[in-house]
Design a protein around this nucleic acid. Sequence first.
RNA 1: GUGAGCGUAGUUCAAUCGGUUAGAGCACUGGACUGUGGCUCCAGAAGUUGGGGGUUCGAGUCCCCUCGCUCACCCCA
Length: 424
Amino acid sequence: MADISAPKGVRDILPDESWKWAYIFRVVQETALNFGYSEVHLPLFEHTELFARGIGDATDVVEKEMYTFLDKGDRSITLRPEATASMVRSYLEHGMGTLPQPVKLWCAGPMFRYERPQKGRYRQFWQVDFESLGSANPLVDVEIIALSVEIFRRLGLHQLEVVLNSVGCPVCRPGYRERLHRFFESRLDDLCDTCKGRLDRNPLRILDCKREGCKAVTEGAPAIYECLCDDCRDHFDAVKKGLHRLAIPYRLDNRLVRGLDYYTKTAYEVLSGSLGAQNAVCGGGRYDNLAEAIGGPHVPGVGFAAGVDRILMVMEQEGCSFGAEPSLDAYGVALDAGSRESVSDLVDHLRRNGVAADMDYGNRSMKTQLKAASQRRARYACIIGEGERQKGTVSVKDLATGEQREILSEDVVAAVRPRPSGDE
RNA sequence: GUGAGCGUAGUUCAAUCGGUUAGAGCACUGGACUGUGGCUCCAGAAGUUGGGGGUUCGAGUCCCCUCGCUCACCCCA
C-alpha cells in the first residue's frame, strides 16, 4: 500500500472509466445545442460571500460543508459547492441583462462539499448545470425539465422518476409556513428531536424528514397547493400542463422543499431507484429572487444541476451503452531490434495522417507485441522486419481475420485508415 | 458531526481453535513457439498482513489506540 493517497472523498477517474465520462459529456453537449444553451466555463472558486448569499447562510451547505480558506490577500475564498450562484454572478457581471431574454447557459465541472463520503457522494463531484436567466415564463420551467429528461433519455436511462412541487413565493409561503407551524405544534410529541428544532426555524423542512414517526405525522399536514397565491398557482398549473403536452410523466410531492426565500415556485428532482440513499441524479427549480439576494437587480431564473458521478453509476447498473470503446486503427510491430526505428517512423506517419496508431516501447518479443495489439483492440498490425525494410514494404495483418498482405510503405495509410467520413 | 461493518500482493480473495517459511485467481514479465496475436502449459517477479502499542512461548487472527475504506444517519447531485 502506497504511503501516499488521495484525500478523503476524492478519486481518480482512470482510463477504464474516463471514456465513459467523455461519452456522457458528448451527449450533454449535443443536447444543449439542440435546446439552444451555450456553454460557459466558470471559475472553481468564488468569494465566499457569493455562496453565503446565493445559497443561504442557514443551509447545511453553507453552514458546514464549504471548502473555505483565506488567500494570500486575506480574501475569504470558497471552492464552489454548486454552480447556480456563479452562473447568476456571471450574468450580472457581464451585463447579460441587455441581451435578448432568457439567456440560456450551461457548464460542466467539479463541485466541492465537505461531507462524509458514502455511495454516490464525494467531496469533489461533477455536475452539469443548466440555467435559463431572465424569464418568468412557465414554459421555460417546462423546457428545463424537458431538457434534463431528454439528456437522461439519450443516455439510455429509463428507471427514473420526476418529482415535482411548487414552493410558492414570498407572497404566499409565509402563510403556508404559519399553517404548518400550527399543525406541527399540536403534534409536537410525535416529532423527532431535530424536527422539534425545525419547527420555529423552518417548518417546511419537517416535511422532508425521513424518520417514520415524522413521516406519519406529515401525512396529514396541509399541502402547499392549498396556500399558493394566484400567481404561483397559475404558474404551477402552466408547468404541469406543459409537462402533460410534452408527455413527460411526473409525480407530485409536497414534501419536496427548498428552504430559502429566493427559491420560488417550481422545484423538482429526478430520482433513480438504483442508487442507494443518495438517489437524486438531478435537482432543480426556479429562483426568481436569487439575483437580488446577491446584490443585483430582479432577474428571474430557472435551472437544474445533474450529478455526473451518479448518472454514470446508474448507467452502469442499468447496463446502458457508452458508445464505442476507444481503440486503435493500427499497431506497429518490430520483428527485430534493427526495425524499431522504422516502426517508430511508420507510426508517426500514420498518426499525422489521422490514423490512431501506437507501438511497443519495451523491446518486447514480436509475439508479445502482437498480443499487445490484440489487447488494444487494434484493427491492423503493421509488421516490419529486415525483409520489409529492404523492400520498402510493410506487412499489414488484419487482426480480426488473420489475413495478411505485404504492401508498399506509402500505401499503408490508405490500407489502414478508418473508412473516410467524407469531409476530410 | 453520529453509528455500524471492513482493512492481507497492482487487483479480487484464501489462511482451521492463536501455531512452522502468509497462499491462489486475474493482471504483469519471460519461456514452450528465435517471422505471427487471442487458447493452453510452465516459470518469474510481486507483502512492513494500514500504522502504533498490548496480551502470549507464539498474533494476519485476541485487546486498546490511530488512520483509511465502505454503508447508513444528516444533507443533497
